[in-house]
């Protein structure tokens, strides 16, 4: 079983429908065709494999607006990275959820704060 993490904490999986599953070695050139999908899950085989973050970002840049889930070994300390890269939520194993309980994830739910990226990307002030 797995636990779904969103900004509000742990929730039971409420998704009904088909996931499109992508592995972390997906060729970014192929992502455009998935832009119209309803829901995509990107696999994190190991938390140290950071490709999923860039894949998420490119999917969003390609126009994908559906539900985007990081699936696998993502640790609480990466929650803000996942959200900032374009994921809506993270799905983790029960073992990890026990070891890193909800409050450790909630500690990173303020992912919009202290974000250099958001800062350097703001629009130019009208001049």
């Amino acid at each position: 079983m797995s636990v779904i993490v969103q900004d509000g904490g742990f929730i039971a999986d409420d998704f009904i429908g088909e996931w499109l599953d992508l592995t972390s070695d997906t060729d970014p050139a192929t992502l455009k065709q998935y832009a119209g999908s309803a829901a995509i899950r990107i696999d994190f085989p190991a938390f140290s494999d950071g490709r999923g973050f860039t894949l998420a970002k490119i999917l969003r840049l390609s126009g994908f607006t559906g539900r985007l889930r990081a699936n696998g070994h993502v640790i609480a300390d990466q929650y803000a990275m996942a959200r900032r890269s374009g994921f809506d939520e993270v799905s983790i194993s029960d073992e990890l959820a026990t070891r890193q309980p909800q409050e450790q994830w909630l500690a990173r739910a303020d992912w919009q704060a202290h974000d250099y990226q958001a800062r350097v990307r703001r629009p130019a002030t009208a001049s």
Binding site: F47, S48, D49, G50, F53, T54, K57, Q78, A80, M81, A82, R84, S85, H114, D115, Y116, Q117, R119, V120
Partner: peptide, 15 residues
């Protein structure tokens, strides 16, 4: 500027 952009860059912490 590069320091600020690269600091805590969400995609690039697990390169």
């Amino acid at each position: 500027l590069i320091r600020q952009w690269s600091t805590d860059h969400p995609e690039f912490q697990f390169l």
